Amino acid sequence: MGLEAINFAYLPPESKSDVVLNDFSKLPGIIPKIGGGQGRYVIKNDDYLIDFLVQGKNLSVRIALCCSSKSIEKVFDIFKTFSEKYGGQLKVIQSKKVIVHFTNDDLKSMVSAFEERRKVFVEQIADISNMPLSSDDVFNYIRQENIKPKGYQIL
């Protein structure tokens, strides 16, 4: 969880978590992440690649900031459906905002937060946008190239 991604956690009701995780694994387009280890999945299309990780009874989500904002809409739709069916909430890790009702205002807020973080990413880290890359790949690229935010100084 760093400068390269926006992160979410879906927290289903504990009594329904096994059913939620089972249904999650059957989502259209969900595939196990190659080389990602157990509990790692992705959904990918031409606009985005969304990383999912089953962590205990919760689902963690990472979206690289170089992906399209359509990735946020996809995450919103997935967890809105789960919330309507099972309950639970979606937590935006960076802002600590908790989404329970999944309104259009919540979606707008999520997209806005993503766009703001992406603007900083493009300006200060890497000038890449609208590329469907895994957050792991972006993180590894930043480390490999030893890219530091503009203005970064070692004290």
Rank of each mutant, 00 (worst) to 15 (best):
I50N: 00
F79V: 04
A9D: 08
P32Q: 06
Q38I: 09
F79N: 03
L49G: 01
Y86V: 11
D51Y: 13
I72L: 09
K33A: 12
L133V: 14
G37V: 01
I93A: 04
I34V: 13
K108T: 15
D18Q: 14
K74H: 11
V75G: 01
L155W: 09
R118P: 07
Q124K: 10
T103M: 03
P132R: 01
K70D: 09
L155D: 02
N140D: 15
D137F: 07
G2A: 02
I128S: 07
K16L: 13
A126C: 04
P132Y: 07
L53Q: 05
V20S: 00
K70V: 04
E115Q: 11
G29F: 09
S15D: 03
A113H: 03
S112M: 10
F102M: 11
S60V: 05
Q153P: 07
V54Y: 09
P12F: 06
V92R: 08
D46M: 10
D47W: 10
Y41E: 05
L107N: 03
R62W: 12
N22P: 05
N58M: 10
P13G: 07
V54I: 15
Q55V: 14
V19W: 11
S129W: 05
P28W: 02
P12I: 01
M1E: 06
C66W: 00
D105K: 09
S60I: 03
S17N: 14
M1V: 07
I142C: 09
N7G: 02
R62P: 08
K80N: 03
L107C: 04
E115F: 05
S17Y: 12
I30A: 01
G36A: 06
Q94L: 11
V20I: 07
I63V: 01
Y141K: 13
S69V: 15
L49D: 07
Q38Y: 04
K85P: 14
V98T: 15
V61F: 03
L133E: 14
D51F: 13
K85T: 15
D106H: 03
P132C: 06
F114K: 00
V122C: 08
I99F: 12
R143G: 08
V122N: 06
Y41V: 06
Q55Y: 15
Y41T: 04
D136V: 10
F76S: 01
V42D: 03
V98E: 15
F79G: 02
Y152I: 06
V138C: 10
L21V: 05
I50D: 00
Q55I: 13
E4N: 14
